[in-house]
Nucleic acid binder design. Sequence first.
RNA 1: CGGGGUGUAGCGCAGUUGGCAGCGCACCGCGUUUGGGACGCGGGGGUCGGCGGUUCAAGUCCGCCCACCCCGACCA
Length: 478
Amino acid sequence: MNTDKLPTRSENYSEWYNQLILRSELADYAPVRGCMVVRPYGWALWENIQGALDKRFKETGHSNAAFPLFIPMSFLEKEKEHVEGFSPELAIVTIGGGEKLEEPLVVRPTSETIIGYMYSKWIKSYRDLPVLINQWGNVVRWEMRTRLFLRTLEFYWQEGHTAHATAEEAVDETVRMLNVYTDFAVNEAAVPVIPGRKSETEKFAGASDSYTIEAMMGDTRALQAGTSHFLGQNFAKAFDIQFLDPGNQLQHCWTTSWGLSTRFIGAIIMTHGDDQGLVLPPRLAPIQVVIVPIFRNDDEQAKVMPVAEALNRQLSQFRVKLDTRSEVTPGFKFNDWEMRGVPLRIEIGPKDIDNGVVTVARRHTPGKAGKSTLPLGDEIAAQVQAVLDEIQAAMLEKARNFRDAHIHEPKDYEEMKQIVQDGWALAYWCGRTECEARVKEDTKATTRCIPLDQPEGQGECIVCGQPAKKKVYFARAY
RNA sequence: CGGGGUGUAGCGCAGUUGGCAGCGCACCGCGUUUGGGACGCGGGGGUCGGCGGUUCAAGUCCGCCCACCCCGACCA
């Protein structure tokens, strides 16, 4: 076990991130470059993310299904922008069972094409619509530069694919699912994302419009934490997804797709983590409460352990762990569980038992300020629930304050160049690609999103000074 | 693909003039410890990235290859 301190975020943010993932056992490097193994602790976190999202998908009328990993190469080529966007990063199978394949198979980078193909078989009538399907799975994109969780060659995600009779319905669906992601991010992960629309250059290959939730990481860089795309009739036309409307007219469907991946784990790490390690939101943490018994000798052990075990049972409604390891000291355990981000630690020793209490330590509030005592007794589970709720709320508020403290509205282009070095700039933008490109050239910052909750305004583009109606966030991104 | 770098125990590294393969952490055993990262003693673990060459002798010198990392380019 590595007992050295982590690098601090200020001395080396990316080393802090990498080492924290390895040491907390969320994930490990696989033998293939750019691939990761999601370890049990990381997968448990992902399962909790899945559960929170899947519930919301079901509540909004979606069903899960599973489509194949392999896609005929020709499918990708049917939608021009789609193939242009994805061809540089495809993994392609050319041999199967020792025989050269008639047609190469792409390992799916995303499933619009194969699902579009199936939808064209299934959809004949307006009565078949809407089709609302989600799939949980893995995809492969041969990225050049990879980072654990943020950008790996293979990653796990969900991808929703829907087909509708009208553009309005499809747009509504796109925005509905963006709102589902926002609700999940804010209320489950305590990640205060900003929902908005992507610019033409930043949108998904093949989409008419892409929407995103953008999150600010602890180094102020932006992370696209989930996306929802209005695909127009692009894929419906490429794959002949057609239906007869009530007037017996043949029409193309309007489709959407939306996805959120294991990248979101990176968002949680970098939104809440501190120099001591992970800080996980109670609603998603694989272990919500850890109980650390403390004793010096057999007599004290005999006194403490039955109480600790009884408490463990009393808290069975939570994801609770009783740390019975005898080979490490309590001090080691405190640091160990803090590094792993467990939201609430309960210490129970002879002194506590004498006083009829347990000591609780809140992960998100380091040191003595986060410690208090709770009386042992029938009320303890309700009190623990209250503390977890309080932690969840405090984490969201802290992240929101950090975000808002690093968003500025520049008065001119010079000021904007300064702002994006350590924050996000919110400014009017004329909508032209040239202005985006100039900002990227000058600062490495890109447009992140055009936030949805803004009134139509009148302003001047921060770059060129021409009339602009909408503000956009500029930031350096992962 | 261009520039730079690194490959020696699970991890981090040392290895001098070519001459027995080492150190710290981790791991295993025993004992003492245990309210904020304990300590002692004992122990296990190696294709020195690969192939070839020079040599009595190669981790060390030479050649070729491979992998990975950093910067750039590229990119949901």
